[in-house]
Amino acid sequence: MMSHDTPVLRVAGRPVGRYVTRPELPARLSPRPHLHPVTTLAGTAVTELGPADHAHHLGVGVAVPDVEGHNFWGGRTFVRGRGPTELDNHGAQRHTAFQLLDPDGFVEELRWVAAGGELLRERRTVAATGLDDRAWALDLTFSLTNVTAGPLSLGSPATNGRPGAAYGGFFWRARKEPRAPEVFTADRAGEAEVHGGRADWLALAGGGFPRPGEAGSGGAWTLVFAGATEETRRDPWFVRAADYPGVGSSLASAERLRVPPGETVVRRVVTVVADGRLDRAEAAALVRRAVSR
């Protein structure tokens, strides 16, 4: 049975992700719909929800730390000249309705609301597709429309003065393990080489190691992220591996992204979720297949 509040994504009848539309969270975490848990076809979890290191990391979703001064990311706000600061400026994403809801995906309408009212309206499309007996793809597109009477701008800690912190947009918080995951693209390897750069695809590979207090090791896994439109490929990747495992897009890296009234920002990210450790050739082949569908 599928609940409209927590629909379950399935690939060939197998559950691979649960979507929470109305999370009960404190305002400082910027409540928003998200996917968690997301698993491989073999059942290995590849997302984390509200971890101790960043309680505002909520599985897979869309989050922006600065929408005209309002925090839709959660946690502290980076203020130029002051650093990370607790502010009462948190917004929330509110689920409005599903335009389509099937076992393998959905189309959702959301409202991005802050203290002054609604700022953005979003249409989010999510689809789960099988690729082979060890991999499936999560296809996520979000469209953000400025519904105010004036221009809006989207920012990040980087545009507010914190180098290397241009997060904001699509974000996937992966499962933290005793060893940091491997990070690589078609021609680069390592967090330092990949973070902040542009690449057609980016892989995060981990698993196979027990976490403290847990029995068993869990299977090895690989996530391969790809920008599936020209606009998405222009966004640099935000990557973390050593401190915590996470990958996202950077809507606002070098400068704020300005959205005139009535205009829409659209991004599409396709993520391959695979059992085992993929090499570069395997990752590239699966991404090509996933994006072309």
Rank of each mutant, 00 (worst) to 15 (best):
V259Y: 07
A149P: 09
D200K: 14
G197V: 15
V259T: 14
R288S: 03
F78A: 03
Y19P: 06
L251E: 07
T85C: 12
G197F: 14
A135T: 10
E255A: 15
T44V: 10
H4C: 10
G248S: 12
A135I: 10
R173N: 05
S156V: 00
E48Y: 11
S143E: 10
V247M: 07
A137H: 05
W221V: 07
V269T: 15
T21G: 03
A274M: 14
E68L: 01
P15R: 04
L202V: 03
R80P: 08
T222N: 05
R14L: 14
Y19E: 02
R188M: 02
R162W: 09
D133I: 14
P37L: 12
D104I: 08
A285D: 00
E263R: 01
A97I: 13
A55H: 01
R293N: 08
G105M: 03
Y167C: 05
Y244H: 11
L152D: 01
A199I: 09
K176G: 02
R22G: 05
G197R: 08
N71M: 07
E48S: 10
W73F: 08
V273W: 02
P37K: 01
V247S: 04
A241Q: 01
L138E: 12
V272N: 02
R179D: 14
R121S: 06
T159F: 15
Y167M: 01
T21K: 10
P33I: 01
L286F: 02
P84F: 05
W237F: 12
S292M: 09
P181W: 04
T21Q: 07
T47D: 08
H34R: 07
R82W: 05
E191H: 10
L131K: 00
L119G: 12
G213F: 15
